[in-house]
Design a protein around this nucleic acid. Structure first.
Lengths: 364, 364
DNA sequence: TTCCCGTTGGCAAGCGCTTTCCGGAAGTAG
DNA sequence: CTACTTCCGGAAAGCGCTTGCCAACGGGAA
């Protein structure tokens, strides 16, 4: 038994499909009370569920929002996804999920798949890369996005614009002031830390990571400190762990216990919380203690990680809000705004907050 | 400029739409080489992207897998989602996400929405409830699922079958031996813990929680221990926190320091890791230390929480695998199995592993 | 050379819904 | 009572794609 169709409902109600459609699936024209009631009853008794595909085909719009993330199990993306999901609900749309692992090629593929499904909008949450080997991939991704926008699609990108994207309509960016916030973190840290700083960054060319590294260095400079050495590794926990191992070795090798003890201690800034946790785990596995032997700070303020001890100093980012904003930016223009706001309305800029906790306390 | 259509491609290539369709979108009949090449070129030059909605309508299948979770930002669900996503990719399908907060009404709605989109299958990851107030909701959910299955849909549920679902075709359950594993955890814990046990459970009627509580009690009994008191609160971190606060008060009020010190200490079993972390945070905020003042154990072995200190004793569940299995169960039957296997093939049962760590070490 | 079968491309009929357009009925004014 | 507007239901034309069926064609066997 196949699902029942609008036509069947119409027949049962003794009206034309056109009328049934007008009654059941929102239309400007509202048929008469009695008829409407008959149709509704018929639909009810048949357990009618409109075929969204057919509706989409007829109206050329699908009620779908495509979301692209690196990895849905990463709490950073999961938090954003929650926001997206929420906003989608407001718009009475469903979320189509694609996880890409971060490669531009996979992202392009995902965009194409969303386009094929005629998704009304696409939210790209992954961090952009500008590595040389991603040049072609980025170009293709940009081309795909441009095409999607030209066909009326709405795109929102979190963080950075896609390298090379030129669409001017339907293309929104939720900017995250990574650089500025990292700078603020650096200056605040410098305020109560005398030793040297080390940065544990993601692979070079990862825009988010690069921004945070750059901002941190600038902050140090403003505070009159010398620039931090930068270690590069994978942008996830295991990358942080690896870097942590290396740093642990150095710390243990360094002379300590003399008069210059405080100055010799390291403050590690990992460009995201997950890496910071990895680094902390590595230090700990080497017998080092935080913040006694080294301080450590992260970025993002991942919720699940807030119970970590010692509490991690970090920069709080309103992840959920970011997802919501991005999604709303792609949605229908909020009503009641005529000509007042600029045409290319900024989709919103979010802000974060430096949050110093136990992991960077100077007192050992 | 709207996206180009098959017809346009066909015209450009000088063939009929039928032929173009056969060339571009997999069909049994393969047109001749030269024609195929012409069509492919035309498609390429137009940047043709097939309209999945139209395809779906014509073939009545959408290439969509619906996933229902309580909250995508909860690491438990995020991990399952990753597995689902992976398996979906294997099947060349996309994942449609619905987060429901756990209510049967919302779940029913989500199922209906998936049905409307003609999702090929649905994976329900949320924990089932059998509370009295959910009776009606569950019944409606079951009815909706039955209808979906009768129309050829495939459903996989993680954990427990939906209460009242009767579909026998296309309805799969990935069983998680919560009860047994909780039992094993209890006996192992009882092996090196002399004090009393307390269980921090979710609201009564949450099947997953109930199973774990029951199993734990059974395990205690097998170990010759007296049953644990059960505290109920929300099935998330804040629920754990609340319970933790209450327990902290008791612990502090209890007489200690006498000869019976060890026997007076509490071992807390929270029915999931997130609650356990919450409880631990509460204890800590009250100045208590783990495992010195109280031991604590969780369930699930959430990846993000593994770096938590003291390391949390728990039961490892192969969350990703569960997602994968559930999804595969709904997919096309693996080829090459004729009559050999039973008709109603079991979709797979997973197993977990008790993992004792620092948080329940007896030595203070 | 003739007949028959196997291929291969095209025609056309949907898939289930929306929406434009049209005709008739009802309502209003003159 | 007639003329004009308004409103409302229905007929029909798609939306973009798939697929069953048919006709034409080519080749091998007789």
């Amino acid at each position: 038994m196949a699902a029942s169709t609008l036509t069947e409902v119409a027949r049962l109600a003794g009206v034309s499909p056109a009328t049934a459609s007008r009654v059941l699936n929102g239309s400007a024209r509202k048929p008469g009370q009695d008829i409407a009631e008959r149709v509704r009853q018929a639909a009810e008794s048949l357990g009618y569920i409109p075929n969204a595909q057919a509706q989409g085909l007829a109206k050329s719009s699908s009620g779908l929002i495509g979301l692209i993330v690196h990895d849905i199990a990463d709490p950073y993306f999961a938090a954003i996804a929650r926001g997206v999901q929420e906003a989608a609900r407001e718009q009475r749309k469903m979320v189509l999920l694609a996880t890409t692992g971060g490669g531009p090629a996979e992202e392009r593929e995902a965009v194409a798949a969303f386009a094929a499904r005629r998704a009304d909008s696409i939210v790209i949450a992954g961090s952009r890369s500008c590595r040389a080997e991603d040049r072609d991939g980025n170009a293709e991704l940009a081309a795909e996005l441009d095409r999607y926008c030209r066909n009326g699609g709405q795109v929102a990108v979190v963080g950075h614009p896609v390298v090379g994207a030129t669409a001017d309509e339907g293309y929104h960016v939720v900017r995250v002031p990574n650089q500025e916030l990292a700078g603020r973190l650096a200056t605040e840290l410098a305020g109560n830390w005398d030793g040297d700083f080390v940065v544990v960054g993601g692979p070079e060319g990862l825009l988010t990571s690069d921004d945070r590294v750059r901002g941190f260095q600038e902050g140090l400079e403003r505070a009159g400190r010398r620039p931090a050495e930068v270690l590069r590794s994978a942008f996830n926990r295991s990358g942080g762990y690896d870097a942590g191992l290396e740093l642990a070795a150095r710390i243990k090798a360094a002379p300590h216990g003399d008069g210059d003890a405080a100055a010799g201690k390291l403050c590690i800034f990992a460009v995201n919380d997950v890496m910071a946790i990895g680094a902390a785990a590595a230090l700990r596995s080497e017998g080092l203690r935080i913040p006694r032997d080294a301080a450590i700070a992260g970025f993002d303020d991942i919720e699940t990680l807030r119970d970590f001890r010692p509490a991690l100093s970090t920069v709080r980012l309103p992840l959920e809000e970011i997802g919501r904003l991005a999604t709303r930016a792609t949605g229908p223009r909020p009503a009641g705004e005529n000509g007042d706001t600029a045409e290319g309305v900024s989709p919103g800029e979010v802000t974060g907050e430096v949050t110093l906790r136990r992991s960077t306390e100077a007192a050992a």
